[in-house]
């Protein structure tokens, strides 16, 4: 097992984020690439801005809290994926759309209301053969 690089210090490499825009550490949060010209935000590697074509981006921390914009309760998925799960689009308090699951909530339409307040949380989603844990994020009711 290797040593974790600079991102969160010289710790044993025991946890890895599911995606690189999830920043782990004491305060797990999402990090977007924000267009230096128009302010449009994107997750993941970008070549240029889909809104204005500008080529420079700045990393920004995305707000941990937001509201539920839309959801679906997914019962049918590929065989290895546990169902049902609640797929959601959350709009954070700073206006960034995020796709994730709702967590810590019953998959029941009567328990889920559009516009409800939610907050980012993380959990271990799997462990590899080296004992390294993958950490995912989801949004839980506030």
């Amino acid at each position: 097992m290797g040593q974790q690089s600079s991102r969160w210090g010289n710790l044993p490499d025991v946890q890895i984020p599911l995606v690189d825009y999830l920043v782990l550490g004491d305060e797990p949060h999402l990090q977007a690439n924000e267009c230096a010209n128009c302010g449009a935000r994107f997750f993941g590697r970008r070549n240029a801005c889909a809104h204005c074509g500008h080529r420079e981006f700045n990393p920004v921390r995305v707000s941990d809290t937001g509201t539920l914009r839309t959801f679906s309760i997914v019962y049918r998925a590929a065989p290895t994926i546990p169902t049902p799960y609640v797929s959601a689009i959350v709009v954070t308090d700073d206006g960034t759309s995020v796709r994730s699951n709702l967590i810590n909530i019953e998959p029941d339409p009567s328990k889920i209301s559009l516009g409800m307040k939610v907050k980012l949380d993380t959990y271990v989603v799997g462990t590899d053969d080296d004992g390294q844990e993958a950490v995912a994020f989801g949004y839980a009711p506030v």
Partner: peptide, 19 residues
């Protein structure tokens, strides 16, 4: 492009068409 360590469908929302 997202530096994912496993497919994200079903963890970070859904890719399925009905969903």
């Amino acid at each position: 492009r997202y530096g994912a360590v496993m497919p994200i469908d079903g963890i970070l929302g859904t890719d399925t068409m009905p969903g």
